[in-house]
């Protein structure tokens, strides 16, 4: 019996591939999420230019010869994009700190990550409010609905990522994130990077390509 019990120590960590269950799971989840965003992006692209009335995303000449001003604000979103890129950079530094047992680096970079994430969400809230005041409600036209749905779902994912990272930060602040548990941050970081790469796709597809 003692022999069996002894074998358990190994079994608890045993995986046939050597990859931790949670890491494999978060990657699988990310794969599944790819199809979720692919469906939203596909919908956006199929409906692009199909609306029956304005406002339009990009400046265009109407048939009556008048120019319709675009509603998208590229400088604002470029700023938001940079924030997300920064946060991805910061979170790898935080993870690297966690793996080396450098508590200062871990907490500092993690705070910076969360800070950037909050500002990104703030940017999006500002953007949406701004559009609303310019007369683009959720149901105004097909562009409005597809745009708000796609970027709104992305924003929701950012928010969930922020809740997750903040939870990890609280755990780290309590000193419960030693190097051997750095996987807890690694999987949150993977999700965070995924949210970032989705934005890397959305940014040109929605904002830059007319």
């Amino acid at each position: 019996m003692a022999d069996t019990a002894h074998a358990q120590v190994d079994e608890h960590h045993y995986t046939a591939t050597g990859i931790d269950h949670r890491k494999l799971a978060i990657w699988t989840f990310i794969a599944s999420e790819c199809m979720f965003f692919a469906s939203l992006i596909g919908t956006y692209l199929v409906y692009k230019g199909r609306d029956v009335s304005g406002p339009r995303p990009h400046t265009e000449w109407l048939l009556n010869g008048r120019m319709q001003e675009q509603i998208l604000e590229i400088p604002l979103v470029t700023f938001g994009t940079s924030l997300l890129l920064f946060s991805s950079f910061f979170v790898v530094l935080a993870l690297s700190g966690a793996q080396r047992g450098n508590r200062k680096a871990l907490i500092g970079w993690l705070c910076a990550t969360i800070f950037c994430g909050i500002f990104f969400v703030g940017m999006q809230v500002f953007e949406f409010t701004h559009f609303y005041h310019r007369g683009m409600g959720y149901t105004t036209n097909l562009f409005a609905s597809t745009f708000y749905t796609l970027t709104g779902f992305h924003g929701t994912h950012v928010t969930l990522g922020l809740i997750w990272l903040t939870t990890v930060l609280v755990v780290a602040l309590r000193g419960k994130l030693p190097p051997e548990k750095s996987l807890n941050l690694e999987i949150a970081a993977l999700y965070w990077h995924f949210v970032d790469v989705v934005w890397i796709v959305i940014f040109p597809v929605v904002y830059l390509i007319r």
């Binding site: 591939t17 890491k23 990657w27 794969a31 790819c34 199809m35 692919a38 950079f89």
Partner: peptide, 28 residues
């Protein structure tokens, strides 16, 4: 490759991600 460590984390995770990306691109 670098931030999500696919370059150093072996082929299984990369294949999962790459396969899905391919399918997503095909769908769109």
């Amino acid at each position: 490759m670098f931030y999500m460590h696919l370059k150093s984390d072996g082929t299984l995770l990369s294949s999962i991600f790459a396969f899905t990306l391919l399918l997503a691109a095909v769908m769109i």
